[in-house]
Structure formats: C-alpha cells, structure tokens
C-alpha cells in the first residue's frame, strides 16, 4: 500500500474514513451515505453513480495536499467537476457557515460583559464575511458554472450558435480568473484575531471549537479554490478554444 496515497478502487470505503477522518465531509459531498459494510470504493461509487476515478483523485488530493494531478483532473468532464464544486458550495453555505455562526453566537451570549464588545466585533466581522462568501458562491453558481456547462453541452452536440461565440469573445473566464477573490484570507485573519489578540480565557472550550472549525473551513476553501483556479479555468479555456476552432472562428 502506498502510504502517502493509500487509496485505490479496491480500498474499502470504510477504510477511507479510518485512514483519514477529514474525508468524511468529502464523502457527504459526493452523496455517499454510511452503511457501506465491506464494499470497496468502486462498488460504492458505482451504486451512487459516481465517477470512481474522479472520486479517488479528489480524496487523494484532499488527503495529501502535495498531490495535485492538475492535468489528470482537467480530463474529467466539466459537469463532473462542477457537480462536485457545487455540492461543496452547498456544504459551506448550508452546513459550515451556520455551524460557525452558531458557535460565535453562543460565545457572544456566554462571555462576560467586559469582553462582550470584542466578541461582538468578531461576530460582525464574520457576518460580513458570510455576506461576501455567499456572494462569491452565488456568482459562480449563477454565472460561471452555467456558462461552462453551456460550452460543454454545445461541444457534445456540436452546435455552436452565434450567441455562444459572442459570449466567449466577451472573455468571461479571463474575467473570472482575475477577479476570483481569495476567500481564505479573512478566515485566517479571524483565526489570528482569536489566537493572538483575544484576551485568553474567554470560554476556552468554545474558542477551541471555533478555531478548529475555522481551520477546517480555511483548508477546505483552499482545496476548493485550487480546483477552480488550476483545473476548472484551464479546462474552460480548452473548451473555448475547441469551440472557436471547430466553429471556424
């Protein structure tokens, strides 16, 4: 077994979690439920209609951040990649963000009056962050992803209408590439405000929980935007190029 990347199609799905519990949310994103008994990765993926090779590349790169097969990943269909990114968005907005919000709210409620103003500042900081994050996700969901799916669909149908060419010429993906905000940096600031600048002993238990969640979300976002920047964007450029060539433009 390869110790750095110990996952193959034959690995038991249960072992995937035993090897790296941080992969639990990734499984959830692929729509995999527990109770897989002794089924292997490939069996579970087939049952759930998941591209097993894509699944493996994703869990490997999440497990070991050094491993990032950019070109391999670009070979998967855009709709496969987008489906994963989209369910990740859902995981952020429906699960992680509310969870963290809840911890900060509890912290705010239970802190002594003398520290209240500090926690309220952090709370407002995070609230502003949520607004930005949701806006970021919405832009991808409403503009970027549909555009990409449209490109891929027209290639498979070999139908290239004028409006599509016109869209490509508007350089939406270059635009996205340049304005794709880094959503991790504010989380890192929040972490540092807590670790380095908050007076100690404000509900240590909650602070620890909060920090753990912030670290997790930050890591997850890093992994996520790496796929967007290094896999999705170059992939889209290829698609665009192919369309322009095949349509004779």
């Amino acid at each position: 077994m390869n110790n750095i990347l110990p996952f193959t199609t034959k690995t038991l799905m249960a072992d995937v979690i035993h090897i790296d519990y941080r992969l639990i949310p990734i499984l959830g994103r692929f729509g995999i439920d527990y109770g897989f008994g002794n089924k292997s990765v490939i069996e579970v993926c087939e049952e759930n209609n998941i591209n097993v090779y894509f699944f493996l590349e994703i869990i490997k790169s999440f497990h070991n951040h050094q491993y990032f097969p950019q070109e391999e990943l670009q070979k998967f269909n855009a709709d496969v990649i987008i489906k994963y990114l989209s369910s990740t968005h859902q995981y952020y907005s429906e699960r992680k963000v509310p969870e963290i919000k809840e911890i900060i709210n509890t912290l705010e409620k239970s802190v002594d009056p003398e520290h209240l103003s500090k926690i309220s500042l952090l709370n407002n900081f995070f609230k502003d962050y949520i607004v930005e994050l949701l806006k970021h996700l919405e832009r991808e969901e409403k503009n970027v992803f549909p555009y990409i799916l449209k490109l891929e669909k027209s290639i498979s149908n070999k139908v290239y209408d004028v409006s599509l060419i016109h869209d490509i010429e508007g350089e939406p993906i270059e635009n996205y590439e340049q304005s794709h905000e880094n959503m991790e940096v504010k989380l890192s600031d929040l972490k540092n405000l807590i670790i380095r600048h908050l007076p100690p002993v404000i509900r240590q238990d909650l602070c620890q929980k909060l920090l753990t969640e912030l670290f997790r979300l930050e890591n997850d976002l890093k992994d996520h935007s790496r796929i967007e920047d290094k896999v999705l964007v170059p992939k889209v450029k290829q698609l665009e190029k192919q369309i322009l060539e095949e349509s004779g433009k």
Partner: peptide
C-alpha cells in the same frame, strides 16, 4: 507583526485595542 492581512481584520484589531473608536 499582527498576522492580519485584510483591512476589515485590521479594523477589528484597532478597535479591540482602543486604537480607534468604533
């Protein structure tokens, strides 16, 4: 020195430490 990169983060730090008023 502070480990804080964004303006929003620096503002929180400054208020927390009484460097500026909210």
């Amino acid at each position: 020195k502070l480990g804080i990169k964004t303006i929003a983060g620096l503002t929180v730090y400054a208020i927390m430490n009484g460097i500026i008023n909210p």
